[in-house]
């Protein structure tokens, strides 16, 4: 039984369907899917061309967490909770920017939902605009690298900490580069009663400016450089991290992608790469990413 069909409209090499099918399969299709407006919604839910094999709802851009809370409340009220898990699939903009209000509300009330943030680090559906989860130094169409500015200035919003701060019982980050990691975390997450948040790094071939054939490699490099740490919090406590054997310099990750290419020629590029390396180092320190040599 397929829970997500072929024939969807994702770009060749898109990470989103990989994440979605992994989540749905991990839960044996016992899922009520709630989707925000965005790439995933557009590629999968055209009237008459629906790709979903599970009950699905899309309402607006910024209310997926609210809609999911409503589905969950209804299932609870009608004694139908055994039917399946309420799972949100929302993009990074829908999660960290426009939808953070309803997400915070759902977290605060601790609805029994699994919220999956599919993080491709910009508004890719509308053509690669900056979101709160766009990393610094990325050239997007609303933070383009110009004569003065080296792409986005600022930082990537730390949604993991924001989720943990809400007292959410299970919070994790994962990556399309490691589907077994997604599977394990999803299976674990649903064992927790209450709200669960998993942020999955998902390569975007058009926005990131990569060929589909290297999508997985690039996703793994984000982890191997320490820029995208894969961590797990249970009841607010850090319980596991994916260790890195020989952490690679961030340049190895950046140089493969058009969105960061300017950093290697721009006047402020070196400074930006240094900043990103600092973020990676801080992640390594904070989460203990480096596998210490005995």
């Amino acid at each position: 039984m397929k829970y997500f069909g072929s024939g969807h409209g994702a770009c060749p090499g898109c990470g989103l369907p990989i994440a979605v099918k992994t989540v749905l399969n991990a839960l044996d299709g016992k899922v009520f899917a709630v989707n925000s407006t965005g790439c995933l919604e557009i590629i999968s839910s055209q009237y008459g061309k629906n790709a979903w094999g599970v009950p699905y709802i899309h309402s607006l851009f910024e209310n997926a967490a609210g809609v999911a809370a409503g589905v969950e409340a209804a299932l609870r009220a009608m004694k139908r909770k055994d039917e399946g898990y309420v799972v949100v699939f929302a993009g990074d903009g829908a999660t960290a920017d426009i939808g953070i209000g309803t997400l915070s509300g759902a977290f605060d009330r601790n609805h029994d939902i699994l919220y999956i943030c599919l993080d491709n680090e910009a508004y890719q559906n509308t053509g690669h605009q900056q979101s709160g989860l766009t990393p610094p130094g990325e050239s997007t169409t609303t933070t383009p690298a110009g004569k003065v500015l080296p792409g986005k200035v600022g930082r990537k919003k730390d949604m993991i900490s924001i989720a943990v701060a809400h007292g959410v019982p299970y919070v994790a980050s994962s990556s399309v580069g490691y589907v077994s990691d997604i599977r394990r975390k999803v299976k674990k997450a649903v064992k927790f009663e209450g709200a669960k948040y998993i942020q999955i790094h998902s390569p975007c071939v058009t926005g990131w400016g990569i060929d589909g054939s290297i999508a997985i490699k690039v996703a793994r490099l984000a982890v191997e450089t320490g820029l995208y740490p894969l961590v797990e919090f249970e009841h607010g406590k850090l319980t596991s991290v994916r260790k890195i054997k020989d952490r690679k310099p961030v340049e190895e990750y950046l140089k493969l992608q058009r969105r960061f290419r300017h950093l290697f020629t721009h006047e402020k590029g070196k400074e930006m790469i240094k900043l990103l390396q600092r973020f990676a180092d801080e992640n390594a320190e904070r989460y203990g990413l480096d596998l210490k040599k005995e």
Partner: peptide
């Protein structure tokens, strides 16, 4: 906004 959003989800779920 959140209240109305929850009603959309709940109503679609049959409530």
């Amino acid at each position: 906004f959140g209240a109305a959003s929850m009603l959309v989800g709940a109503s679609a779920a049959g409530a």
